[in-house]
Amino acid sequence: MNQKYLIPLTAVFLLFLIAYTGVEGAGLQWFFGIVFPYVAIIAFLAGFVYKVLGWASSAVPFRIPTTCGQQKSLPWIKQNTIDNPNTSTGVFVRMILEIFLFRSLFRNTKAAFNRNVSNRLSYSWEIFLWLGALAFHYAFLVTLLRHFRFFTSPVPSCIKFLEYIDGIVQLGLPGIMLSGVVLLAATLFLLARRIFDAKVTYISQAADYFPLFLIIGIAATGLAMRYFTKVDIIGIKTLAMGLATFSPTIPEGVGGLFYGHLFLVSILFAYFPASKLMHMGGIFLSPTRNMANNTRAKRHINPWNYDVETHTYAQYEDHFREKMVEAGLPVDKPLDKKE
């Protein structure tokens, strides 16, 4: 079991070291600062599009939403229009809630079996996975958006506003950005869950630990640069602006720690389309959530529907005619007199 997380952990360390020593020792700033980030972004975009188009090219033969509430039925029965939508508006609301609030995960329960006392199975609300997941995703999003200050000049006011909100809790200098701290804490929680919850350990693959370690590595190097070691912000902004304007340059005085951070981010981007992280795109295409439960009211077309061989009534009657007549059941063709 151990190698499932030891290998990814080692891999992330090695990746960081490669970039660090590559820059500090071999002077490969051009590779880790320019070539690989471009390669990673191209891989991300191309891979993402390829994957989504691949899903989209598969047919949706049946309209099979998972219904999680009362259907539209008789006029006096109250429909649950969100969890069992029959219109695209309802589906839209359902999808918004899924994508932005993880509504299904919010339902999560924990089962317990109380042997020998009551022999009762009980289910309690389990909110921590939802909380951890939500904290992680939003912290990641905010952190990502904040980084646009490096790629834009002048920095758009929305990014500044986001920074202002993110930094609203002020404890000492430099000002704490909540998102970065929450990101690290939430990923550590998700990791702890994988390691200490026996059921989750059992189902986990190396592919579950790798992105976690990668993001922990990214968050840790990022926090280290912001709060513990002084990095050359002006230099980094020059590099980022160079990348964004397709006129890349390598500034002087930016150290290995930054390149390590950038390399891990690049790896994350490049790895994204080939991994489970594609749930980001997949959630939009999940037929059990993004379809209306109205197949009885509005016919759904299966693009590959084909004719099948059936056992027709005529065949059936031919087989049973005598017995049917005897039992007084009506038949389409009268019984042959000779028989």
Partner: peptide, 29 residues
């Protein structure tokens, strides 16, 4: 089937093994 059913293709790709489903199945319970 990967071509004929988007469900199958998407569901093969996007599970993150979060474990939310683990103790929801009556056969597991």
């Amino acid at each position: 089937r990967l071509e004929k059913f988007r469900t199958f293709k998407v569901f093969m790709d996007i599970c993150v093994r979060c474990g939310a489903c683990a103790d929801k199945c009556h056969f597991f319970l």
